[in-house]
Computed example of a mutant assay.
Amino acid sequence: MRDRSVRRRSRIAAGLTAVALLGSAALVGCDSDRDGTTKGSAAGQRKPSAAAGPVWNRGPKSVAAVGDSITRGFDACSVLADCPEVSWATGTDAQVRSLAVRLLGESGAAAHSWNHAVTGARMAQLPEQMARAAKEKPDLVTVMIGANDACRDSVRYMTPVADFRSSFETAMRQLRAGAPKAQVYVSSVPDLMRLWSTGRDKELVRQIWKLGICTSMLGDADDMGAQAVARRASVQKRVEEYNAVLRDVCAKDARCRYDGGAVHDFPFIGAQLSQWDWFHPGREGQARLAEIAYRNVTATKPPA
């Protein structure tokens, strides 16, 4: 979900490292609650039944992932670096137990999953990723993208909804051209407003966000003036509009399943976020995303 360009990495790396190392323990300790899901829970251990619907296969044998920095595990292992081994979709990390591992087992995931996501990608880049994924002829393609379209230096630079829709429709056509029978699991865009409310009252988090993370929502995090409130509301509205597009376009494809807003509605807490930026999911957050995806992919019916 990073909205910074590559050329700014070196400038903010030192700041992120210094701030996060001084306060990483405080970040993790800020929230003592958990989401109530534990490793080894029923949701994490369920196996898909042999019965399948007329189109949706609840036990795919290969997985390709497309999207942005969340799917690349950005900032989950070290500062300003991808860590695909902890990806919720295709990672191999034992703590995360990615969707691919849950569906295919460790050896199956290693041999039959591919991660084509790109850190910093916006919806306009999805068609190219989908074309690459189609070449793998996967049974299932996971999609998580859109946060970078809302996370810009200013709200006026957010991707217009019409452009967002057009790019997603083009991406689906690209996939269908090369892999007409591939299933598609589409995750909703996370709730950036909830993320802001989780960290805005913490001095350490505000200092990290000042380094330039999702400025449209997180900039001047403690400013409660009318302009700042309106700016955040604009970002929140745009995220909701993006999710409506994801839902609507997916609904037109018989082999596409939207998550019903599950990722958007998930209440991420401090312990589930990166210690480096309090924005991207850390290992715990990636594990929660994997649980959500597995539950929805293997469900008898799509989410409401």
Results as ranks from 00 to 15, higher is better:
residue 157 Y to Q: 15
residue 51 A to D: 15
residue 57 N to P: 01
residue 273 L to R: 09
residue 55 V to S: 03
residue 30 C to A: 15
residue 151 C to I: 05
residue 194 R to K: 14
residue 55 V to D: 08
residue 99 L to Y: 05
residue 107 S to K: 15
residue 86 V to L: 07
residue 74 F to L: 13
residue 121 A to Q: 08
residue 185 Y to A: 09
residue 242 Y to Q: 11
residue 40 G to Y: 09
residue 75 D to V: 01
residue 279 F to N: 10
residue 161 V to M: 08
residue 144 M to H: 12
residue 290 A to I: 02
residue 259 D to C: 05
residue 260 G to K: 08
residue 245 V to M: 04
residue 61 K to T: 11
residue 219 G to M: 08
residue 303 P to T: 02
residue 36 G to E: 08
residue 241 E to T: 01
residue 74 F to M: 06
residue 295 R to L: 03
residue 70 I to Y: 15
residue 126 L to I: 10
residue 292 I to H: 01
residue 262 A to V: 02
residue 199 G to S: 10
residue 169 E to K: 13
residue 159 T to Q: 10
residue 47 K to D: 04
residue 5 S to E: 13
residue 75 D to Y: 06
residue 103 L to Q: 07
residue 300 T to K: 12
residue 44 G to Q: 12
residue 302 P to D: 04
residue 134 A to D: 05
residue 32 S to E: 11
residue 218 L to S: 10
residue 162 A to V: 14
residue 213 I to R: 05
residue 72 R to C: 13
residue 236 Q to C: 00
residue 137 K to Q: 15
residue 57 N to G: 05
residue 148 N to Q: 09
residue 97 R to H: 02
residue 91 G to L: 02
residue 231 R to M: 11
residue 37 T to S: 12
residue 235 V to K: 04
residue 214 C to K: 08
residue 134 A to Q: 06
residue 237 K to S: 14
residue 299 A to W: 02
residue 31 D to H: 14
residue 150 A to H: 08
residue 19 V to R: 14
residue 84 P to N: 10
residue 237 K to T: 12
residue 195 L to Q: 11
residue 168 F to L: 15
residue 29 G to H: 11
residue 85 E to Q: 14
residue 272 Q to K: 06
residue 197 S to D: 14
residue 48 P to L: 05
residue 225 G to K: 08
residue 146 G to M: 06
residue 142 T to N: 06
residue 234 S to M: 12
residue 128 E to G: 14
residue 101 V to H: 09
residue 8 R to A: 08
residue 161 V to N: 04
residue 290 A to H: 03
residue 90 T to C: 07
residue 7 R to M: 06
residue 236 Q to I: 00
residue 246 L to F: 02
residue 25 A to M: 12
residue 220 D to I: 00
residue 156 R to G: 01
residue 125 Q to E: 15
